[in-house]
Simulated assay, not measured.
Amino acid sequence: MANYTLEEKESFTVLGIGTELKSDYTDYAGINKEKADFWSAVKQDGRLDKLKAVATNDYIFVVNEAVNNKMMHYAGVMTEASLPEASRVIQFPKGEYLVVKGAAETAEELSNMVTGIAFGQVLPEAKNFAYVGGPNTAVIMGQRNGSVFGEMWIPVVRK
C-alpha cells in the first residue's frame, strides 16, 4: 500500500476561487484538462495572487468538493479575510485526515499525484477507515531542491 498517515487536525477554513467541473467524474483526462485550464486562468488574471496576499501562511490549497450535486474545484488559501473574487468559504471539519505526502516538478503534477495515490490506492485498500464525503484538498506547501512538495488531506472516519 502507498505511504500514508492518519492525522488529527483542528477544523480550518479555506477561502476559495472555484469552477464547476463539467466532465463526467470517470473522465480523468477531461477533469485534469479542466483543472489545468482553471489554474492557468487564475494565475494569469491575478486572482491567485490576490488570494496569496490575504493568506495566513504560504500554503496553496487545491480543493475538490461536491456542492449541490456539482463537482467543484477551488484554488484556496487559509485566511480570515474575504475577497470579492472568492466564490466560497470552505469549512474543513475537525477530525482524522488521511495524509499522503509527495513531491513533483510542478504544483499541478504534485496535486494529481497525491490525489491519485489517495483515491486510487490508499482508500480502495483501507480496512480501518473510509472517506465519506466533504471537501478534500491537495496542499502545496513549498519548494525544495527544485521540487514542489505537499500533501493530500482527506477527512476520514473509522470503520
Rank of each mutant, 00 (worst) to 15 (best):
E80L: 09
A126K: 10
P124Q: 03
V148Y: 00
E109A: 13
N128F: 01
Q121C: 01
V132D: 14
Q143C: 03
A86V: 07
N145D: 13
A86T: 05
R158N: 13
V157N: 03
T56Q: 14
L110M: 03
Y25D: 07
P155Q: 02
F12T: 10
A138Q: 05
I17T: 13
F149R: 00
T5A: 08
G18S: 12
E108K: 03
K22H: 09
E151K: 09
T13A: 12
E108R: 07
I60Y: 01
I117A: 00
D27W: 10
A138F: 00
V157H: 02
K9E: 13
M78F: 11
L98V: 14
N32I: 03
N3M: 10
S87L: 09
L6N: 05
F61G: 07
V77G: 11
K52T: 13
V100A: 09
V62F: 14
A29K: 15
V67D: 10
V114A: 05
D27I: 05
A103D: 11
E105V: 05
V148D: 00
A53E: 14
Q121K: 11
Q91D: 14
V63I: 15
L15I: 14
K33Q: 12
N68S: 14
W39M: 12
V148H: 00
F38V: 09
T5R: 14
A103L: 08
I90A: 07
V62A: 12
V14N: 06
F92S: 06
V62Q: 12
K50A: 15
L6K: 10
F38Q: 04
V157K: 04
H73Y: 15
S87K: 12
G16V: 08
D27F: 10
A130Y: 01
P155F: 05
K33G: 03
N68H: 11
S147T: 08
N136L: 06
S40N: 13
W39C: 12
E80Y: 09
Y97S: 05
N68C: 03
D49N: 15
E80S: 15
A118G: 15
M72L: 07
V100P: 07
I140Y: 00
N69S: 10
V62C: 08
A86H: 07
Y131F: 12
P93N: 08
W39Y: 15
G150T: 02
V42N: 09
A41E: 14
M141F: 01
P124F: 05
I140N: 01
S82M: 08
G134W: 00
H73F: 14
G150W: 00
D24I: 08
G30V: 08
L98M: 11
R158C: 04
V157L: 02
K159I: 11
M71W: 12
R144K: 15
V77F: 04
E8T: 11
V42P: 06
T106A: 00
Y4E: 10
F38T: 04
A86I: 08
F38G: 06
V54L: 12
A118K: 06
A118Q: 04
K127P: 01
R88N: 09
D58E: 13
E125Y: 02
K9S: 06
A55H: 07
W153Y: 01
A2P: 14
V139Y: 02
L15Y: 14
M152P: 00
A66W: 07
P93L: 07
